[in-house]
Write a protein that binds this DNA or RNA. Sequence first.
DNA 1: GAGTGGTCTAGACCACCAA
DNA 2: TGGTGGTCTAGACCACTCA
Lengths: 244, 244
Amino acid sequence: MDKQLTSPSYRPLYEQIKVLITQSLIAGEWRPGEMIPSEIELAARFKVSQGTVRKAIDSLATENILIRRQGKGTFVATHSADVIKLRFLRLTAVNGQKELLQNEFISCDKTKASTYISQILGIKAGAATIEVKRLLTFSGRPLIYDHIIVPAAPFKGLNSVKVEESNGSMYSMYESQFGVRMIRAEERLKAVAAEKDVAKSLGLREGYPLLSIERVSFTYGDNPMEWRLGLCLTDDHHYMSELE
Amino acid sequence: MDKQLTSPSYRPLYEQIKVLITQSLIAGEWRPGEMIPSEIELAARFKVSQGTVRKAIDSLATENILIRRQGKGTFVATHSADVIKLRFLRLTAVNGQKELLQNEFISCDKTKASTYISQILGIKAGAATIEVKRLLTFSGRPLIYDHIIVPAAPFKGLNSVKVEESNGSMYSMYESQFGVRMIRAEERLKAVAAEKDVAKSLGLREGYPLLSIERVSFTYGDNPMEWRLGLCLTDDHHYMSELE
DNA sequence: GAGTGGTCTAGACCACCAA
DNA sequence: TGGTGGTCTAGACCACTCA
């Protein structure tokens, strides 16, 4: 491939390759869980050296978009694999015990986006959305009251049956049912007092301190695709965060 | 440098170089903020190629232990630089406004490690520790009640004067006064009800929901060097977390 | 212009995996 | 045994910084 010739805004080759690979991912050329072509093949295809492809893949791998397995190949990351089913769930038991997660469906409604939600999801105010409410229980004890909002367009056909079948992992359901893969999320945490209905669902008195987790999830290209508010009882659990 | 000759447990060369560089950092050969030798110099010193040194430095740079500056050199990261003074503080105002942080000293005592603290800090139960309590105010409003415990040995001479002079940034004080640089921290978050004395300090009623942040900070070699419990009022602030 | 980190290449060899 | 990713090298050239 031609070198950069005094290009106005310089962009490294490997970043351009990264974009090309990402485009193939968006286009669905390689689906979640599948293996992508080997570095040598991609190098030939893009007419660059193997080292340049490697650098592009390295970058996508650190972003958890691709997964490298020595001796086997490079794979498209997925939320369905057992190991990473709860990749975005940072809540763990204080005593470190393994827990059984269960999903208790509350409601699933067709609604319209408020101004706030429309700005977050990058859609028009009043655009069609789908709202899901559910209760997550750990080892039988209700711990998280979840309120989820997604734009209706990419999730046409999402209903209570699909939510109940998802069995707690909305992300793998989004992936298999709608081809929407989340690659990144931002969370904002607060301590709040439990409101009446939430307190009732969690079996608490009103005003009990809850950890409020507001999450926005992004798919390829940093497109916001889900808003979520989780209210968590943290008496026996905590949220883990690593600072580096 | 000699290649690996059928070594029982294989370790890449660049990881060994990484260890050597880290050792020089621990030994204080290059101090925080200083520039380390160029890649070419280090390659000559360790008798490996520049690319191998580069890979070791890359790794240390992504861990925020070194900082690369194109055209200038590679520098030892520090907590004193203005830009990253609050590197470990994830609490930001909901409206995104910039705020003035101030430090209100409460107490500084010589104590002995409880069983819990001794396990966390990797010292003997009953070993000498130093406990600091303080109030952090943002734009004049008290927002965080901090309880800090460090082992006495590495922080000999730490007293109320030094805490007050630190003006909120304990980490840059640890660095300049005691040569202890924190490179990583783990935080565990919960929602709790404000206890009496904390509520009073923050100007709240007892039982008010607070965000509890328990933090353990590590210096080179993953040595735990500080335990901290912050109780935060999150009415107008939230804790930011990125999931990838 | 000299020195630094950043990119890109081409090729060799190693470790890991599966058939 | 062949294919994959992982390491290492040597050398060329580019972009950035500062005197």
